[in-house]
Design a protein around this nucleic acid. Structure first.
Lengths: 113, 113
DNA sequence: GTCAAATACATTGGTTTCTTATGTATCTTT
DNA sequence: AAAGATACATAAGAAACCAATGTATTTGAC
């Protein structure tokens, strides 16, 4: 099972930011694999969605990059900038609030954490 | 406060279906107002989003319509069809599942219902 | 009694954000 | 040696929204 694709819209940026907040630095491919394993294959981030998102976060100054070579193959690490850290908190709490609202609206019972 | 618009994407159809499931029949303008008051103005459904959505639900056979006149002004009521009721359950439970996954991924604590 | 705001429908054009497909290249495993 | 995994990237197209605009009626405030 995996979700109809429209559900991911609007949440991808938040997912990426949160992963970077928890892991100091990650590279693109690593992010797709981490999300896949964390969600038991329910959420699969496509590369066509991820890379433009990372580039846009960089253009907005929320992440910085450093390139590393593994043998001859390039690997591009992303890390949160100070404004990126602030942005992450904003986006995560906005999404949490939105989910509370949706829960109420749809009368959905969620498991207790 | 209201949410960045991209969050609504993918959830509008589910919201509309759920409201119709709870209220037998509703008209477009009523839906926008109901969502607005239920969410304390946090979610505002625009007419440019709502009407195409309703038309698409009708085209897919998930809702049926009946027109009523209030004075000279027309009012178009929407009701769930049998397949619409099935679809509603599917969409609501898919969204609930998605929200559980996101909660885990983002380590968000939600209030207990 | 008139004028603004609310009610009620609808469409068009534009943007954002994804998917699918494609491309290049390297490394690992069988 | 070939297939599959790793790792980057972009382009074309679709989906789903917003903002703006349009039409028309009704209500409420002054």
């Amino acid at each position: 099972m995996n979700y109809s694709s429209e559900l991911l819209k609007g949440t991808l940026k938040t997912i990426v930011l949160k992963l970077l907040a928890d892991n100091k630095k990650m590279y693109g491919y690593e992010i797709t694999q981490r999300v896949k394993e964390l969600t038991l294959d329910k959420i699969q981030i496509t590369e066509g969605a991820l890379y433009p998102t990372l580039h846009s976060l960089e253009a907005d100054g929320f992440v910085t990059t450093e390139t590393e070579f593994i043998g001859k193959r390039v690997r591009k690490y992303y890390s949160l900038s100070p404004t990126g850290k602030t942005k992450t908190k904003e986006k995560v709490s906005e999404l949490a609030d939105f989910m509370e609202t949706m829960k109420f609206l749809l009368d959905i019972k969620t498991k207790t954490t």
